[in-house]
């Protein structure tokens, strides 16, 4: 671990100034991802700016009927909040499907969506990785791809030597729910505040695998707002994993059904939480029969690229994603008719 300076400023404005002024500075909140990466040599900051006690830890009602989650609220606290449990079960379930009780007591609203990929090659500094070391290549192509992407990747075996190649997935469960809820991210940066629609917070790889989000250097998430949902909205989160608990998603589904409108986000399949917009369009206003959902998901997944590799590859995720969405929507609609 490289030495670094530590700062614990008096308020968020000062924290933002501190980070903005030092190109190799990072924010520290719950620490569950950053400290891990400091030890592995993945993160090598010169300055760590502690914001854990600076942003709000509260969950507050918004005038429009939504909820504001302070950036320092912990995953446990948000999942336990009665309003979240009653109005946004998809978020409570996603949080509770993530990590463990101990980690949820540490991880924060602001930090969780910014956690980085769990690709094993990203986590191993002895192997090339375009995300960790731009231009070094992608070790994951043809390697251990079980937890890696099938959507938003250009081919079944993209060129591992190309600088833009990356088949990483985003590991957060919370982020998948927030994507389906069309949450709004409140940000404070050197240039002031701005609001980012959650769907625009994370990037696809594009030509820059090293950048996960659209946040500028020095920008800090201060809260995440949940918009109000129409009366009668039903939502849920379904995570499919290799262990019954304490495992990243192979595939996860966040589904929100309000009247004719259905919103579907997928986890474990892409570089960002994947809104299944094509399937949503096909399903809008139609009865959510297994058959219709299946057809819509087939259309959504038509461009999916299975990644072969050691241990069997990840092509199974394509049928698994479709089947999981079918099962999730079936359960949501059967609840409604019960």
């Amino acid at each position: 671990m490289k030495p670094f300076a530590y700062a614990h400023p008096g308020d968020v404005a000062e924290a933002v100034r501190d980070v903005a002024a030092e190109p190799n500075a990072v924010f520290l909140a719950g620490g569950t991802n950053l400290v891990d990466h400091l030890k592995l040599g993945i993160a090598t900051p010169d300055l760590v700016v502690d914001v854990r006690t600076l942003t709000s830890r509260e969950v507050t009602d918004l005038p429009d009927g939504g909820l504001r989650l302070g950036a320092a609220s912990t995953n446990s606290e948000v999942a336990a909040d009665r309003r979240v449990r009653e109005r946004y079960p998809v978020l409570a379930q996603a949080l509770l499907a993530g990590a463990t009780g101990q980690l949820r007591n540490m991880a924060t609203t602001g930090g969780n969506p910014l956690q980085r990929t769990r690709c094993v090659y990203f986590g191993d500094v002895t192997t090339p990785c375009n995300k960790r070391e731009p231009g070094s290549g992608c070790s994951a192509v043809g390697g251990y791809t079980r937890y890696l992407a099938v959507l938003g990747v250009p081919a079944a075996l993209p060129d591992p030597t190309a600088p833009e190649t990356c088949i990483a997935t985003h590991p957060s469960d919370m982020a998948v729910a927030l994507a389906a809820l069309d949450a709004q991210v409140q940000v404070l940066g050197p240039a002031g505040t701005r609001t980012i629609p959650f769907g625009e917070l994370h990037r696809l790889v594009g030509d820059d695998p090293s950048t996960d989000t659209t946040l500028e250097h020095g920008e800090l998430i201060t809260s995440i707002d949940l918009p109000p949902l129409p009366a009668g909205t039903r939502s849920s989160y379904r995570k499919v994993r290799d262990r019954a608990s304490y495992a990243y998603a192979l595939v996860s589904v966040a589904a929100v059904v309000s009247g004719d409108d259905v919103r579907i986000a997928l986890g474990g399949v892409a570089h960002k939480p994947w809104r299944a917009t094509r399937a949503e369009e096909l399903l809008r206003g139609r009865p959510l029969t297994d058959h219709a959902v299946r057809a819509a998901m087939d259309a959504e997944l038509a461009g999916a690229q299975p990644q072969p590799g050691v241990g069997g590859g990840n092509g199974f995720k394509i049928p698994l994603a479709a089947r999981t969405v079918v099962a999730t929507l079936r359960e949501l609609t059967s609840e409604a008719t019960r």
Binding site: T32, D36, N105
Partner: peptide, 19 residues
Amino acid sequence: CTVLLDGQRSLICLALAVA
């Protein structure tokens, strides 16, 4: 490494002492 940190069960291998 689970302990009660300020009353809550936490993993202190991921907590910087200085923080």
